[in-house]
Design a protein around this nucleic acid. Structure first.
Lengths: 143, 143
DNA sequence: AACAATTAAATTGTGTGCAATTTATTTAAC
DNA sequence: GTTAAATAAATTGCACACAATTTAATTGTT
């Protein structure tokens, strides 16, 4: 058997497992404000930019309309965002925060600190991880 | 606005996005042998251990029966594995490789190298990433 | 201006991923 | 020895994630 075909030798499996682990650590924190992790990411973008097209959200979050459309409809039904077709270009759908959505930012303020606490890591360790990932992924984005 | 509530400040988002990116890089390679990434992970375990219970697979891959049962049924229908209830303990289902499943190992032999190539990374970079992740996640497993 | 090409979302279909519950079996306690 | 507790899979239900296609609107070409 090739050494590379052994699970413990896999370099990608730990990343896959760790990403799931992070989302699982977020879950109880986000349950408290009735958001899923992808929905929380959408909120982060909207808290920063107020209004975004589906495309803009997709670029920032690396998600396509097949994922975003139903996700945003769920967020709309929770009264967190509005979905409005642009009048200047009817193909574009603008996603904007409602008052509810804006208000949620305060309730979510301590989520980042709680996560660090729950994961039992230091910000420095996560930063180190982030640095390596950006070093690796930037190589391909430049193409 | 709190600095921690800005997407670009998030330390977990890059890991989430990178994990998806890896799976997307695997996709065309695994399409060629008609496996999804989680199915490929199951195959890696079985190539190494020949036979595993659903529980053992779940522990190694960090997946529960709600995920594994339908996944393994799909693999069974592709004639890659057999699912057999243990005679000594009828609660346990043993997953074993078929001849087809064993044979697939040869076709999958160059997947790891192809992935490294496709991602345009060095093994050293991925190893560095793996080291940091194991440093972080081991802290919690010890509890 | 008419029509092709492009673009933005939505839709369809398949496959995870996980919480919560259920079913069946085995083990433990009395 | 019978009932309770524990265990292993399976089931149910919901929410992504993404490929492929479709629909609708806009832009570019002639």
């Amino acid at each position: 058997m090739k050494k590379q075909q052994i699970l413990s030798q896999q370099v990608c499996f730990p990343i896959y497992a760790f990403a799931k682990e992070i989302i699982n650590q977020y879950r109880p924190l986000l349950d408290a404000i009735e958001l899923t992790y992808p929905q929380y990411l959408v909120m982060l973008v909207l808290w920063e930019f107020e209004s975004q097209t589906v495309n803009q959200l997709g670029e920032k979050l690396k998600l396509d309309s097949g994922t975003l459309t139903p996700l945003l409809k769920r967020m709309e039904s929770k009264l967190l965002v509005t979905r409005t077709r642009s009048s200047s270009d009817e193909r574009i759908v603008n996603i904007a925060l409602t008052q509810n959505g804006k208000a949620l930012q305060i309730k979510a303020a301590n989520v980042p600190a709680q996560l660090i606490e729950a994961m039992n890591v230091t910000v420095e360790e996560l930063q180190e991880l982030k640095n390596i990932i950006s070093k690796i992924s930037n190589k391909n984005n430049k193409k």
